[in-house]
Write a protein that binds this DNA or RNA. Structure first.
Lengths: 203, 203
DNA sequence: CAGCGGCGTTAGTGGTCGTTAACCTGGTGG
DNA sequence: CCACCAGGTTAACGACCACTAACGCCGCTG
């Protein structure tokens, strides 16, 4: 890869540590002094980089929602030469989401846990990005499984997100098989769930 | 049914409202005055019923973990006449968990979100109950799908919990099909996920 | 070399929150 | 009728916390 960790800026350090702490103890459970200490500066020094504690959370949530969406759009687009194969697109979406869940565990946790701590305007933005991401999935799922009506497809997508996002919640990471095996397992679980939902009431 | 809502005691009112508020805004995000106001008394009056705010959370989490476990044990036991059918047991476990997730949404949310706000002793108790519940599922899943090794089965169970617990997270309940339809859909998703995981790498 | 702006620091400050203290009140049993 | 107790009340206290103020250091740039 050409991107070789180009010396993380202070802002990025702060965001990374804030994400970890917020995920561990909750937004209200972490003080600014702790965040500062985690990057080697203390307390109010953070205000040289962010206008406030909530701004950090907002940037984290907008960031991850945006990256999920753009990643999803990209995968949906690049797999669509003429004669696009919907199954391959869904496959790619699932794999991309799994990579996210396994590599950015704190962000995935924050993403559906601390959304309500945002100001109205930020929360609306994040929700909009999340909604677009869901709709992207719904569309692809319905191409692969045309028997699924739209509300059912949307419910399935939400449920599968719950499935894919479940791994970060495990306290000790050692409880899982290796990363590759876990990814493969989640992949099978997700696709199997969609297929079972689409196979109608007759099993 | 013979149980016809036998006049909820004050303690029960408090627990119910506290569960709702904790689920909405997080343990640290809710003040004791709000909890009091939600049941018509104000602030410190709660201390006639609980030794502190954390005791409410502890009772909620121990309560739900315990009820999940005893419910699961019961279902596993009653389905096991001689010639027990593992598929039916798993079916029953899934249905029972879905009922819980759909009927006690706040508790399900708290259950995997605010565990870390407990004192050591309470947290250990809850974790122990959760672990037993997981192991119960793992055992049944491996009877139904013997090809699954134990670590994989455990990972699958965690993931399916994530799937089943995903519905409470949806902000507006109106986004789903009716309760029965949602339950049926979740049931198919869960069993389909297990089956797909067990069907090995060949799809 | 002067000055200035980025990036810290420490010392407050106002507000919130969990908890305790002290007091009140209506029903109940001796 | 009186004592008591369960279950409230309001007032206050101490800790904590996000944020601001005032100041200091240091590497640029002109």
């Amino acid at each position: 890869m050409s991107t070789q960790a180009p010396a993380p800026t202070r802002r990025e350090q702060i965001l990374k540590e804030a994400a970890r702490l917020f995920a561990e103890r909750g937004f209200h459970g972490v003080g600014v002094d702790e965040i500062g200490a985690a990057v080697g500066i203390s307390g109010p020094g953070l205000y040289r980089h962010f206008p406030g504690k909530e701004a950090m959370l907002a940037e984290l949530l907008v960031g991850i929602s945006g990256r999920l969406l753009t990643g999803g759009k990209q995968r949906a687009a690049e797999a669509s030469g003429q004669e696009r194969d919907p199954g391959a697109v869904l496959d790619s979406l699932v794999r991309g989401h799994i990579d996210f869940a396994l590599d950015d565990r704190p962000l995935i946790i924050l993403h559906d846990r601390e959304l309500d701590r945002l100001r109205d305007t930020d929360r609306k933005l994040v929700r909009s990005l999340q909604r677009q991401y869901v709709e992207l999935w719904v569309q692809v799922v319905r191409e692969v499984h045309p028997r699924l009506a739209e509300p059912e497809a949307r419910a399935c997508v939400h449920a599968v997100f719950g499935l894919l996002n479940s791994t970060p919640h495990l306290s000790r990471p050692g409880a899982l098989p290796g990363r590759a095996a876990t990814a493969e397992l989640l992949h099978r679980l997700a696709l199997g769930a969609f297929r079972a939902a689409a196979d109608g009431s007759g099993q």
